[in-house]
Design a protein around this nucleic acid. Structure first.
Lengths: 155, 155
DNA sequence: TTATATTTGTCCGTATGTATG
DNA sequence: CCATACATACGGACAAATATA
């Protein structure tokens, strides 16, 4: 009798906006991942432009018929991808992307990327969800750049 | 009288493992950040090697005398940094890092990094918290590489 | 193979702090 | 001062997926 145990909940969703229906609690994909995917699409398509508010947690929770935990985790995912910023007292907003400046790398460098830890983020004044570019020069020295402010160009 | 308002709680921590004492609920640093920092240190030092289980949420909650919420948030931070993997039914483990292969980029390319969306992650079979490297060639074509598998080298 | 235990996912409730309007 | 909104933090409960005996 494990089947259709969410049936009643689905029926109770009448009155919820059409877009809310695209979240399926029976899916194998966690609800919070589904909401993150939805919001990410709206951000990347420009439907939610930089600076726009994505809606309060309570509103999203009600609109999509999911719990507060799921909404918070979805927002946490988007923050960890650098797509939104949220802080105490502020509505969660689509993060404006800074212009990238060009940095020329010399010959024979290796270039890699990774996520910074919280110390590095503080030191470089970076938002959550922004990777770093790491350039290792032929002499062994390393240099680290914020990934949303820098674009490298090969010689 | 805001001082020592958690005094009683400290006394009540007798019986908790010594390492647990390194989490201070009175600190301005959130508890979940402190736990994330602790676990990150253990991962980066090799004390928790790739593939190792970091301990269940319930266990960490009990061991450090903090709530499950804080534990989950700490794990979420580490996941977004590409340090651990977790999913339903599986114990949370330290993410194994694959060997990086060298890819030579031609002259005049621009190289940038960003977080992939979930579609890209699925297509490239990438874990959460792993950025991508994006190479734009002089002819305008783009190529995207998983950031933990590829290291670029300038010509 | 089946059954049980473990672990993470999700929901809910409550409370306090911080920041904005 | 008050209302709103998010951040942090605790607690309980159950579901779903996997691990293990």
């Amino acid at each position: 009798m494990a089947t259709r145990q969410y049936g009643a909940r689905c029926v109770s969703q009448r009155g919820v906006k059409a877009e809310a229906m695209s979240i399926d609690p029976r899916s194998h994909t966690p609800v919070y991942v589904q909401l993150a995917d939805l919001l990410r699409d709206q951000i990347e398509s420009g439907e939610l432009p930089p600076g726009a508010r994505i809606g309060s947690e309570a509103r999203l929770s009600q609109e999509y018929g999911i719990g507060r935990d799921a909404v918070r985790m979805a927002i946490s995912v988007l923050r960890s991808e650098g797509l939104v910023t949220s802080s105490r007292g502020h509505p969660t907003q689509v993060r404006p992307r800074p212009e990238r400046r060009l940095v020329e790398v010399p010959s024979g460098c290796t270039i890699s990327t990774r996520m910074p830890n919280s110390n590095e983020r503080r030191q470089m004044d970076m938002d959550e969800g922004v990777p770093v570019l790491e350039v290792r020069y032929p002499d062994g020295k390393k240099q680290t750049f914020p990934g949303d402010e820098v674009e490298l160009i090969s010689p």
